[in-house]
């Protein structure tokens, strides 16, 4: 799944907040404005000529703008559909201290950032999966890391700036699950909490 599609789906995932947002005058304005266009599913969106002039990354911006089109109940549950218990790909999430947080089950193609959001795991996605930040950095179990395709230059550029980078670090939004990743561990990096930029030390001035 491309990042733009993922991002589009993720904005659908966020649609639980639509009713809240619709109370904002502007959001209803925007909804009104976009309602003249037919709702596209993710695949149609990718093909639509309206997005042809956009760079792939920018599609996520437009995808966000179209979130109010997707109010159908089927999509309201978002990109991550939970598999029937016992049938999904198991992923173990651990916190920075290595303490077990949650074991979740996922479908093929789900990405770790969407899964973390679906399961209330404290992983940020400031750029919403468009490879423009490093906030969804996770550390993977080495054997599973080796099974993944190489990170793109764009992803590596962001990992350069990640805190607590390790040899098995990836951006959560770029890790898409396959059956052979069953049993993978994703650990949240250290130094993501209670850390003042640049290791600010208490000194008196």
């Amino acid at each position: 799944m491309s990042s733009s599609t993922t991002s589009l789906l993720r904005t659908c995932l966020r649609s639980s907040s639509i009713s809240r947002q619709a109370t904002h005058g502007a959001s209803s304005l925007r909804a009104l404005h976009t309602s003249s266009r037919p709702a596209l599913n993710a695949a149609q969106w990718k093909r639509s000529s309206a997005s042809a002039w956009l760079q792939p990354r920018q599609q996520s911006i437009l995808a966000n703008r179209t979130r109010h089109m997707h109010t159908s109940p089927a999509l309201a549950h978002g990109s991550v559909t939970r598999p029937a218990p016992g049938t999904g790909i198991k992923v173990h999430f651990k916190d920075a201290k290595g303490e077990h947080l949650k074991t979740i089950e996922a479908n093929e193609g789900d990405d770790l950032l969407s899964l973390a959001h679906e399961h209330d795991i404290d992983l940020e996605g400031a750029c919403e999966g468009s490879i423009a930040c490093s906030t969804c950095h996770v550390i993977l179990s080495p054997s599973h890391y080796d099974l993944l395709p190489e990170p793109s230059d764009d992803e590596n550029d962001m990992l350069d700036m990640a805190f607590g980078l390790t040899d098995t670090s990836r951006l959560g939004c770029q890790v898409q699950l396959t059956r052979d990743l069953d049993g993978m561990t994703a650990t949240l990096p250290s130094a993501t909490r209670n850390m003042f930029v640049d290791g600010h030390k208490p000194t008196h001035h």
Partner: peptide, 12 residues
Amino acid sequence: GVLASTMMDAYA
């Protein structure tokens, strides 16, 4: 620092 570092500082 980039946005990510601002965010971490803010949470702290």
